[in-house]
Computed example of a mutant assay.
Amino acid sequence: MKKFITLALVLVLVLSVALTGCSSNEPAPSNGGDEAPAAESLKIIAAHNQTSPDNPYQIGLLEFKEVAESLSDGAIEVEVHAGTLGTNENELVEKLQLGAADVVIVSPGFMTQTGIKEVDIFALPFLFDSYDHWEAVVDGEIGEEIAQLINEQSNNQFKIVGYWTAGVRHYYGKEPIHSMDDLRGMTIRTQTSGVVADYWTRAGAIPTSVAWGELYQALQQRTVDSAENAYPFYVQQNHHKTVNGKYTTETGHDYTTRFMLVNGNKFDSLTAEQQDIILQAARASVEAERAALYAQEDEHKQILIDDGGEVNEIDRTPFIELAVPLQDQAAVEMGVVELLEKIRALM
């Protein structure tokens, strides 16, 4: 009997060891030690629509990747896509909704296509008069209010985890402009609907839709007379070297806002530790992207000049005077009159 009991105990011990080995993927029970359990693994697909490796968007998302992977000791893996998931922002929004992307960078204009019309306030021409003004808005109570509005109206599909910028936008085209009259009858690549198109139409130009990836060819082949963007973006794409992109007039009509978005429902499903790491990485990416953009504006303006491009300044007063009533009208239509007044009060 003693031999039988001893044999039975041995078999139980062997079986116990075998089961422990088979369940090695399960979290180990706490042994009362100081060593923290390993973080759960997570893969994040982060995407933007720019293709240049030197673009501020790429610099920002690479910073997000570095911080997220470092803080998680590699448990969180970030895969950055520079234009490879789509060069149109509506593609990125769709992929975020479908779960094919986890972090995307998009403009307010594409968010309005989801039915959240209020965010188009950021697209109003001459809404901001400096980067200090812009930062005071997006980094303060107004930025928090917009973030909450987007989250609620999208039923938690979209969650803002950071405000990026795509620089201050200027006109560039086949000839310089010295007054608003020079825009009359000129085609300009910009948004073809909403407040942006309305403004350029009132200024006398003809808004034209051209995909960003096709704009170099459109300018070179004279399909479009002009465009508008910030130095780091169009100079990196060599638009200033095209036939219809040589002349830049510093209209400064848009201090741009870009949303760093995640899917709120997926974010809420993560552990508290993962959420905290993602938010820390997002804050780091905001600082890196803005710093890169601010530095590159001066750098790429000089590159443009060195390459033979020409830059002129303009009296912006008539352009601003045209924009103010448009801002008022759009704010009423969007239901953001109070928000507009708050933004103006921070000037």
Score class of each variant (00 low, 15 high):
W200L: 11
P176N: 03
V243Y: 09
E313S: 14
V103Q: 00
F319L: 09
R189C: 15
G33W: 08
Y163T: 02
H133Y: 06
G33H: 05
T114S: 12
E94M: 14
I314T: 01
G167Q: 02
D182H: 03
R222Q: 15
T84P: 03
Q274H: 12
V104G: 05
Q113P: 04
E94T: 14
I150Q: 10
A288N: 00
P176W: 00
E145S: 15
E118Y: 11
E69L: 04
D315Q: 05
G32D: 00
I206S: 06
P108K: 05
D139A: 14
T317Y: 10
E145A: 15
D132V: 03
A330W: 13
P125Y: 08
I116H: 08
V332Y: 10
E135R: 15
Q275N: 03
V138P: 00
D120A: 13
A272V: 13
G245V: 01
F158E: 03
S41W: 04
E310G: 07
Q113H: 06
P29H: 04
T251S: 01
G33M: 10
L13S: 11
G252E: 11
A46W: 04
L92E: 01
T249K: 01
I45H: 08
P325T: 11
M186K: 15
A272F: 11
E289Y: 07
G140N: 06
I5Y: 15
F267Q: 06
V12E: 13
E338R: 14
P56L: 04
N312S: 15
S130M: 04
D129L: 06
K241S: 12
A147S: 12
K241H: 08
A288L: 00
E79P: 07
D225L: 10
V161D: 04
L61R: 07
N312G: 13
G21M: 13
V286Y: 01
D254N: 13
D182Q: 04
S107C: 07
L339V: 10
G309I: 03
S30Q: 11
H239I: 05
G33P: 03
L92T: 00
Y172M: 06
S179M: 08
I177Y: 05
Q153D: 14
E152R: 09
Q280A: 08
K301S: 04
A203L: 09
G194D: 00
N55A: 11
Q217G: 13
L149F: 05
L62P: 09
S226L: 02
V311L: 03
L92F: 01
S16V: 07
P56A: 03
K342S: 13
S193T: 14
A227N: 11
E214T: 14
M186C: 11
H240E: 03
S154W: 06
H240F: 07
V195S: 08
G74T: 09
V311M: 01
D328S: 12
I303F: 00
E63P: 08
